[in-house]
Every structure is written in C-alpha cells, then in structure tokens.
C-alpha cells in the first residue's frame, strides 16, 4: 500500500472545457510529486466530462506551457490548455 501523501490541485478551465464542466475550475487529487501527465490522467478519471479534450490537452503552470514531466506544486496556478478550434 502506497504511503504517498495526496495533494489537491486547482486547475483552471477555458473554452469548451469550461462549458462542458459548467465550472471555471476543477479540483484534482493526486499524489504529491505527480507530474503534469499524471495530473491530466487523474483529471480524466475524476472529471469524466473533460475526457473529450484531454487527448490534445496540455497544462500551463504559472502561465507557461509545461512539459509532461514537470511536477507542479499544489500552490501553482495551473490551467488546462485544450485548443480545439480550427482557423
């Protein structure tokens, strides 16, 4: 059994993700030390309404696009960047 502590992350939503979730943010629980890729997976599991944007989504951490292996701090400003529009 894992003894990793769980942290709660607040993730801002925009565009179609915000409309689908009917909220401007979601809370995501994940073990401390979870990287952005894992946080996106946890988001999909905990908020299935957002699953439709996650395959093409990335996270921004403190207003910069974050690589998949970036480990955000629960106090960071985290945003779901899912750009699905055409031109």
């Amino acid at each position: 059994m894992s003894d990793r502590e769980t942290a709660r992350f607040r993730v801002l939503l925009f565009g179609p993700a915000r409309e689908r979730a009917s909220a401007d943010h979601v809370l995501v629980d994940a073990p401390v030390g979870t990287a952005c890729a894992g946080l996106l997976q946890a988001m999909g599991a905990q908020h299935p309404a957002l699953a439709f944007v996650l395959p093409a989504a990335r996270l921004a951490v403190n207003h910069a696009l974050a690589p998949a292996d970036r480990v955000p701090d629960p106090g960071d400003e985290i945003a779901l960047i899912a750009l699905v529009d055409g031109g």
């Binding site: 925009f14 565009g15 179609p16 409309e19 921004a60 696009l65 945003a79 960047i81 750009l83 529009d85 055409g86 031109g87």
Partner: peptide
C-alpha cells in the same frame, strides 16, 4: 506564426 498560434496560444473562440 499563425500555425503555432492556433496550437500554443491560449485563445478560444465561441
């Protein structure tokens, strides 16, 4: 620029 903007710049249209 335009290709990258549509991919990377956080602007959404409704």
């Amino acid at each position: 620029f335009i290709d990258r903007m549509k991919r990377d710049v956080p602007i959404w249209k409704r």
